[in-house]
Design a protein around this nucleic acid. Structure first.
Lengths: 185, 185
DNA sequence: GTCTATACTGAGATAGAC
DNA sequence: GTCTATCTCAGTATAGAC
């Protein structure tokens, strides 16, 4: 059994996702997850602060991708146009990880406790993106409002893509942005 | 000790809010809440499924107010104009309960676990409002997107009102709606 | 790695309202 | 008598302290 911490971490995530799917989040104990990953229960809590967090390890990387995309967007773009680019970048990542994204998505949707954590992570991401906009000089109110409205569009597009993976995320994103425009006009 | 369940329920809510403010959510035990309310710990869990839910008892009433406001809005309004009315109605309720709303708001903002639950309740409200829009014949995608974007506006206005209660919620709402319009144009 | 506090659950008994 | 709120007792699992 490898002693590498990173390896154990990955096995714990894999084991947790499997068990949450097999018997449900509530009926899975941390001891079972640890056993399947070949470590002790204590090790589980060394890697993850709680039973939910094990499914949200990629969030900080996504945050970096998004805040960097904000910083690197060309000068002179309107806030919502910056966000369109940012979400397109994030959408690509999600598209590439589909084999992991999709089962994870299902488990979260089926589990209220995980859904709560998911929403909290989204709120945190939205806040980080809004802050990145502010650092580009966008005023605080506009940054906040644009990012939240933009997230509604992104979320809509992501769910559209789950239902219809034949079209790429960027197509779904464009459509959702157009829909929002139509609703306001 | 009164046998009325409603009375015990109210005492439990009151005791919980007090204790969460006095020593923080994490440092408050359910046994302490029950003791202050004059019931046993087990009774706490008969009224509330968990330690967080005790602060979210008014949500179902707010949901009814909002979905009814959707149903009662005049014919022929665009989705976002319906929502503007709905949120104005909800805003009035929030304004009236200020003495309860504000301490509760503070405790939630200071406690990650409560913030998560708060976000989940918001998501559930958004879904209920979107469904009410669908029942008026608004197509599913528009209902979803409009309600989420509208909620971003509502949330912005609510925080503006906390910072500046001198202006009414409806003023803050109008301003936030105008801001969104400006961002899209 | 060990120990412990506490959130939460289940089943059965009791007490008051009707 | 039924029904419902509460209590008592006995546990399990998570998470944090040591």
């Amino acid at each position: 059994m490898p002693r590498s911490g990173e390896d154990a971490r990955r096995r714990l995530q894999q084991a947790a996702l499997e068990l949450y799917r097999e018997r449900g989040f509530d009926r899975t104990t941390t001891a079972e997850i640890a056993a399947r990953a070949g470590v002790t229960e204590r090790t589980f809590f060394r890697h993850f602060p709680d039973k939910r967090e094990v499914l949200f390890d990629g969030e900080s990387a996504l945050r970096e991708v998004m805040t960097e995309a904000v910083a690197e967007a060309p000068e002179g773009l309107a806030p919502l146009d910056i966000l369109r680019r940012v979400f397109a970048t994030a959408g690509q990542r999600i598209e590439q990880n589909r084999s992991f994204t999709e089962p994870r998505f299902e488990v979260i949707a089926a589990t209220p406790a995980l859904r709560e954590r998911d929403l909290a992570k989204h709120a945190s991401l939205v806040e980080a993106v809004a802050q990145a906009l502010r650092q580009r000089g966008v005023d605080a109110r506009s940054a906040d409002l644009a990012t939240r409205a933009g997230w509604a569009v992104f979320d809509r597009a992501a769910r559209d893509w789950i239902d219809d993976p034949g079209q790429s995320m960027s197509v779904h994103l464009d459509r959702a942005f157009e829909d929002l425009r139509g609703l306001i006009a």
